[in-house]
Design a protein around this nucleic acid. Structure first.
Lengths: 226, 226
DNA sequence: ATGAGCAGATAGTAGCACTATCGATAGTTC
DNA sequence: GAACTATCGATAGTGCTACTATCTGCTCAT
């Protein structure tokens, strides 16, 4: 197919596709002449992936480029792909050069990892991210929120197990890579959405509205313990 | 204190503080003359909150303004504050005006809510977000990832229970509002961090490295089932 | 053979989160 | 009381990002 068909198939405008080509988010088509090229199904898939990463995953173009490069490499060890995907979705801390001393948050996270038997490389981006949030809680005088750490960790274990099970269910290495990338980047958004729903549902359970009929959404109010 | 002291206390530059004042992220100080004002502890706390929302929570200035307005209102019903906080952290879908027809993702989410007894208003932003991600999985040919929905939902319940418990532990209504806002906005980041750690740990458990010593991070490898 | 489509390149746009500067005034210090 | 620094409000500018527009050749179907 040619560019205009790629455009109509994927919904991305022709200038946007050119932009993706320039930014190396999209591999070039097969040239049929100095100014003509053919695109195929792989380009359609790539454009869909890129748009999912950018729009749903909220990645920047630069991060998305790293992710598609990892997908293209194809033969990276699985842990490397995880690393790339994880780093792509993790907003970088603003580089404090003067204080690499461990904070209280670092200590809490290390303690949690030890308690749960989580063995990870010290450059795992989640370590710094979690520690940073805990430090921010403390800076805002919300140490009370440190109490969520344990249940959050339990939930993270559940989610990670599901993630890895999905990866293991993939038929081949290429598919595994795809599952890792898509699942890691979009999984954050999926979980965030479910958390919003569960929060509201739980909020109604704990603090019922006085008289108005609350949520006509679903079934009868269950009383599962929490 | 005056602006320069507020600046040195919080780490935000004077121009940045002026910007926050203009953008109504920071309430004005008490005027002592036409061009002088005094700031107090409430301003320090506010600046810290704003910076946490912007830097750690990744909110835009506009979203952060909505959040601080909700905090200032102070007397909103809890569910409203949750709504504001949730909407603030949820990236809006790009407004498809032509197709409000329920997608497969909407159907899956509704089914999940019914199964779990989650009763929520249909405008809960999590509903659309989760459905959108599921549709994106399908568009990328990764329906296999739909299998994560159940464990994710279970994990979301855990997290939401912890969230609400933290809210309930707050001593008064003002504090509750703060916990909701801070917990909702930064909680996503905290969970994302823990998920990264758990993913890597689980990845090593499922796919052990051949010979190299993997993670010198923490304790001995546990074999808790997954 | 002509008009639409395409490639590559350069330049422009809109939004965001600040940042710089200015003139007028206020407090502070010598 | 003069010099100096700090502040206020306002306007304008900066650097970055994710596109978007336009231009110049070319090419290919009709």
């Amino acid at each position: 197919m040619r560019m205009s068909e790629l455009s109509s198939t994927t919904g991305a405008t022709v200038p946007t596709l050119k932009f993706y080509l320039r930014e190396q988010l999209l591999h070039a088509g097969e040239r049929t002449s100095p100014n003509q090229a053919q695109y195929d199904e792989s380009h359609v898939r790539r454009v869909r992936l890129v748009r999912a990463l950018l729009e749903v995953g909220g990645l920047s173009v630069a991060r998305a480029r790293e992710v598609v490069a990892a997908v293209d490499a194809g033969t990276l060890p699985l842990s490397s792909v995880f690393g790339v995907a994880q780093r792509a979705v993790t907003v970088p801390a603003p580089l404090v050069d003067d204080a690499p001393t461990p904070t209280e948050g670092d200590r809490l996270v290390a303690q949690l990892c030890a308690a749960r038997g989580w063995q990870v490389y010290p450059n795992n981006p989640g370590l710094a991210l979690a520690a940073r949030v805990l430090d921010t809680y403390a800076a805002l005088g919300q140490e009370r929120l440190h109490a969520v750490l344990e249940p959050y960790a339990e939930a993270a274990d559940l989610v990670a197990c599901a993630d890895l099970a999905a990866v293991a269910a993939a038929p081949d290495e290429t598919e595994m890579t795809n599952v890792v990338v898509v699942g890691t980047v979009l999984g954050d958004a999926l979980f965030a959405g479910l958390r919003r729903i569960a929060q509201e549902a739980e909020s109604f359970r704990r603090f019922p509205l006085p008289e108005g009929v609350p949520a006509p959404g679903s079934a009868t109010t269950t009383d599962e313990d929490c």
